[in-house]
Amino acid sequence: MITGEQKPFEEIWNMVKDFKKVLVFGCNTCVAICHAGGSKEAEILASLLRMRAAQEGAAIEINHAAVERHCEPEFFQPGMDNVRTYDLILSTACGVGVNLLSEHIGDIPVFPAINTEFFGAVPRSGEFTELCAGCGNCILHLTGGICPIARCSKSLLNGPCGGTNNGSCEVSPDIKCAWVQIYDRLKQLNRLDLMNEIVDAKDWSKAQGPRNFKVKLLEEIKK
C-alpha cells in the first residue's frame, strides 16, 4: 500500500492562505490506513485550517470531503460538479491522486497536503516499512523472499558489502543487513546454494518512469 505523511502545518497553511474557497479532499484507501489523508484526517486538517484562518482574519471557506479512491476517475467523477465550485483543492491523497485529479478537474489547482513516501507493509498497527521498491524485475525467488533492492541500503544483488555489521547495516544500527537476512532465510529453506548464483547486472530501465501497461486480455476483449 502507498504510505505518506502529512506535510508540516505551516507549509500547508502557506499553500492555502491566498485562496477563498478550499476543499480538503481525502482519500479513504491507502493514506487513510497510515493516518495521513483519510476522511478523518481531512476533517481534522480542515478544522485546523479554519481555526488558523479565523485567527489570521482570513475569510476562507474551508470544507472537507473524501472519496474511496483518488487513483481511479470513476470514484471522484460523480461528485465533480460540487468539487468544481471550489477555487483550490487541497488533496490529502497520494501523489497519484493529485496528478489524476489535476488532469480531470479543469482550471482549478490541486495541491498536495501529504508527502507520498513508499509502498509499505504494516508489520504492526501504526508502523510502516518499505519491503518492495517496485523495480519492475523481481528476483525474490533467488533471495528467499527478502528484497535486496528495497531493503539493502545499496541495493546490492550479490551478497553483502563490507559495511555489514553483526547483522546490521553500516548506515544505521536500526537497519538490518538485508543480505544477512537473506542468508539466514536461505539456510532455513535449505537453499544456501542460491547464494552462489550470480545475478547479472540489473536492467534498471524497468524501474524508472514514466511506466505504464495495459492488460492484454482486456484489450483483446475490446477488439
Binding site: 502545518f9 481534522i44 485546523l48 481555526m51 488558523r52 485567527q55
Partner: peptide, 9 residues
C-alpha cells in the same frame, strides 16, 4: 499538539 499548531494554548 494539534491545538498548539494553530496557536491555541
Amino acid at each position: 499538539g494539534l491545538l498548539a499548531k494553530v496557536g491555541i494554548d
